[in-house]
Simulated scan of single mutants.
Amino acid sequence: MTLEATALVLDGHNSTALAILRNLGRRGISVATLDAAPSDYGISRYAKDSVLLPEAGETALLESLLALSENKPVLFPTTPVYVDFVARNFSVLKAHFRFPAPSAESLAAGAMTDLFRDLMPPQRDLYGSKDDLVLEIATSLGFPCLIKARDGKKEVPIQYIASAAAFSRALEKIEAEDFYVERYVPGEASDNYAASLYYGGAGELSGFVTTQVLRQYPEFVGEATYVKQKWIPELIGLVHPRLKAAGFRGIFHATFKRDEFSRKVYITGAEACFSPETELFTHLGFETPYLYYLDSTGEAVPKIFFQSDTNCHFRDGWRDMAGVASYLKTGHMGLMKMIADYKFRKIPATWAWDDMGPGLNKLGAEAACGARNLYDKLPFNK
């Protein structure tokens, strides 16, 4: 199959991919998607082609990509899993596609983690007997703590472990070599932040924006569902010097959390990846997909730095509804606080008046999922 589009988006199953499609499409750039299965978002009007993988697995994905590379489109991996895929197959993909990363090391999650390891919460491997591990974690990291999957299993959710007993139970259900334990940084949802930066040719910083989380789901370990753009210079100071020294190029996204007691800010994630809030950034004028496209095609990358507050908020509607319900159930955030936070200008993750199809498709998918869950709970199905 010959792909006519000049940009190819890997995986349309998330709002980040949708934001990339819309930003490029509104700029008049022809975009296609490659998916393993039909997306809940359906097909955006800005997608010129939507290709489904004939088979599952990394080999099939690589073969399908190479079959679509005749015109050497700009390649957009939309999630950390796909960024790691590009890193593992860097030399082959770099010869057939355009993207700004100069090396596999500048994309690999392990390399990003190594660059900022001393700024991250303390971690421990899960080697040894269960009793020894419980004692070691209790005396070194303490409880609560987090169990996280290693790079090869990023699709596995983070586990919030409240006690030694819960940790012991969790160890019985996992393969130790695939996971590690991390100290839980205490704090509220609003103690979580993020920063996205873009580095153009010669590793020159071309722009940045910082955000503060207002709600997340699941409550202690989930992704942000309601976010506001807020200028937090401390975050840029933590990551920029190291990225500059490393000669980093392309898109970079980091998450942070401030310890509510010590007030120290930890880096909780660092990846060469687009932010889940990309739709917010493009709305504000920090068009990271367009910058990435220009950089990949050898064009000049404009500079834009957000060093003030815009009071603009981003809401991932479906997940935020679940987050609101969770906060009300636990009592960790009151209704009046949520109402007060809700009065500002908001950018939705899915809905757009010029591209209504994905929003309507997602509505239908969520309604069908809710109906299935309700049906499964009916007495005659037990």
Results as ranks from 00 to 15, higher is better:
P276G: 13
L243T: 02
A367P: 00
I137F: 06
G250N: 09
V9C: 01
L34H: 01
T59S: 13
A367W: 10
K94P: 05
L119N: 12
A101G: 00
P122M: 01
T297G: 04
T59N: 08
K148D: 09
G200L: 03
Y193Q: 05
K230Q: 15
S262K: 04
F305T: 06
S15E: 15
L135R: 14
Y41A: 05
N89D: 08
V86P: 03
Y217L: 02
R215C: 06
R249M: 09
A17H: 00
L93I: 07
P144H: 09
S262E: 08
S103N: 03
Y184P: 00
L214R: 11
A272Y: 02
A47H: 05
G323P: 03
K228M: 14
A95Q: 15
L238A: 10
T297A: 04
L107I: 09
G28S: 03
L363D: 11
I161L: 08
G110F: 07
H313R: 13
F90H: 04
E172C: 11
S30V: 10
K346I: 15
F252Q: 06
D125L: 11
A7I: 04
E234Q: 14
R117K: 14
L146Y: 08
A138V: 07
P302V: 06
A101T: 02
I347Y: 01
G187M: 09
K48L: 14
Y327F: 15
S103W: 01
I147S: 06
F90D: 02
F220K: 15
C312M: 13
A95N: 14
G370R: 14
Q216Y: 03
Y160L: 08
W351D: 09
F85G: 10
L171M: 12
N361R: 14
A322I: 05
P289A: 01
S206D: 11
F90S: 01
